[in-house]
Design a protein around this nucleic acid. Structure first.
Length: 185
DNA sequence: TACGTGATCACG
DNA sequence: GTGATCACGTAA
C-alpha cells in the first residue's frame, strides 16, 4: 500500500524521517525497482544545514515549499542526483533525504544501471538514485503516482533497531551539523 | 586522506 | 558574467 498524503503532510519532519525507515522506495521506468529504506536525514528551514534555511526560496529548492508528498531531486557536486521526500504543509520548507536502501525489487535492472555489486547500492544517496534511475525528471513527482512511490509493507521495527546520529556532509552548518537528525537501521 | 566535477547562487 | 561552494563517490 502506498503511503498516503496525510503521512507526508504532518508537521514533525524528524518523526517522518524515523518512520520512513522500513518503508519501500520504488520507481517504475523500464521496470519496477525498489528497496527498503534503511537511512534517512531530516532537514528543516529552521536550521542552517537545510537548502531552505530561513525560508529562502531559489530555483533549485522551490519543490521543498510544496505541500508534502512530492519528490525534491537536485544535483550535488554537479554529478550525483539526491532525492528528498517533501513533508509538511505547503510553504513549510521541510524534507527528508533518502540516504540508503536495501534493494529487493528489480535487482538485475539496478545492477545493470550501476554496474556495481548489489550490496554497494546500500552505501550512499548518490548511488541509490542511480540504481533507481532517478534524475531531474523526478523533481516534483507525486509520491502517489506511478513513476515513484513509497510503499508500506508493514515491516515492524523496534525502537532499539533505530539509530539517531549527526547528519553527513554538512560541516558548514556549524552547531546545526550536530543535530541528531540522521536515522538508520 | 584527497580530488574530480559542474550546477547553483550571491555578488556585481 | 564570475567565482566560491557543495546534503558525494572513488581511489589509495
Amino acid at each position: 500500500m502506498k503511503l498516503s498524503r496525510s503521512f507526508y503532510r504532518r508537521s514533525d519532519v524528524c518523526e517522518i524521517a524515523r518512520e520512513l525507515l522500513g518503508k519501500h522506495l520504488c520507481t517504475k521506468l523500464d521496470g519496477i525497482t525498489g528497496g527498503m529504506i534503511v537511512e534517512t536525514e531530516a532537514y528543516s528551514w529552521r536550521e542552517s544545514g537545510c537548502h531552505a534555511f530561513n525560508n529562502k526560496k531559489t530555483a533549485r529548492n522551490a519543490m521543498m515549499f510544496e505541500s508534502g508528498g512530492v519528490a525534491y531531486v537536485y544535483k550535488c557536486y554537479g554529478i550525483h542526483h539526491l532525492i528528498n521526500v517533501v513533508t509538511g504543509k505547503s510553504e513549510s520548507g521541510e524534507a527528508v533525504l533518502i540516504r540508503a536502501i536495501q534493494p529487493d525489487t528489480g535487482t538485475a535492472l539496478m545492477q545493470e544501471r550501476t554496474g556495481q555489486p548489489l550490496k554497494k547500492i546500500t552505501a550512499g544517496p548518490g548511488k541509490l538514485t542511480k540504481a533507481l534511475g532517478i534524475d531531474m525528471r523526478f523533481n516534483g513527482a507525486d509520491l502517489k503516482g506511478d513513476l515513484i512511490w513509497i510503499e508500506d509493507k508493514k515491516v515492524i521495527l523496534k525502537s532499539s533497531q533505530i539509530i539517531a546520529s549527526a547528519r553527513i556532509g554538512i560541516e558548514y552548518a556549524g552547531a546545526d551539523a550536530k543535530l541528531p537528525w540522521r536515522f538508520s537501521i
